[in-house]
Design a protein around this nucleic acid. Sequence first.
DNA 1: ACCAACTTGGACTAAACTAGTCCTAGTTAA
DNA 2: TTAACTAGGACTAGTTTAGTCCAAGTTGGT
Lengths: 148, 148
Amino acid sequence: MLRLSKLADYGSQVMAYMARDGDVHSASEVATGLGMAAPTVSKILKMLARENLVASVLGAKGGYMLARHPSEISIAEIINAMDGPISITECSSTSTCARESFCSTRSNWQGINHIILDVLEKVNLAEMIAPKPQVVDVNAIRSRGILV
Amino acid sequence: MLRLSKLADYGSQVMAYMARDGDVHSASEVATGLGMAAPTVSKILKMLARENLVASVLGAKGGYMLARHPSEISIAEIINAMDGPISITECSSTSTCARESFCSTRSNWQGINHIILDVLEKVNLAEMIAPKPQVVDVNAIRSRGILV
DNA sequence: ACCAACTTGGACTAAACTAGTCCTAGTTAA
DNA sequence: TTAACTAGGACTAGTTTAGTCCAAGTTGGT
């Protein structure tokens, strides 16, 4: 399924919600605003705070706010904060693979992984919350070779 | 983690193994060749056969062989056979999302998903087994906008 | 005709992961 | 000093995933 975890999905929604203004939002406010369970949103915001994607304001009237401008936060960072390093195959990162010698396909997987990572790094929050749905220019990529 | 399932990973290895020649391979032969558990390889081959990526030969001296030429089998097909439809977010497909009205980010996720799918469709088995690791031309993509 | 080798399909189990909840401690504004 | 909030971690329940096993059908060789 090659899918994002639900948490990462939620994380992007929470970030998108906060990106609409620069205010401080409490976890419960975000939860009601998005129709999600409060403890879940709280957990997500904690994870995002740990990776410095949101800044926390302690105490009464506290909450969370984006740590940077939406245009400076990439989707890749959000996924990374929620799910850890983005890598399509298990040993495409630095971890050693017991079956390494058999895996002649490895380096090609790494190449594919690289492209996906690149796409995700290229899209930022500001683009994601653009009210008018943006269309992907697939042809620009389709017209070029992936592996050269 | 945005990751492939282990089964899909194994699937690509099995397909790559078989792509090296046009012969019929028994499940156990592939298993020993790749150093994987025999029942697991058998299960994978069954899944690949159900999606017509490999053809099965019944009886003694039977086994499996690629259904098509390696250059006509895309990585996307293999992932699809093992993990089902490739979609990065849960409701990027046709399924209805209860929180649809809140998800202004949806269509952009779909765009990202589309690109990833496109990349995976563009890479075929023949390219994956190329002995010399192929290098991805990331810059070709980086130089262009993702969302237009 | 028979046997051995092999696939097919499904059921099944065990383990891992994920989502989601809850609790205690610490911080701040009023 | 109290109410409103975050911080951090432990915990549970549910789902998914990997992997095993078995009974049945098919084919090639002898």
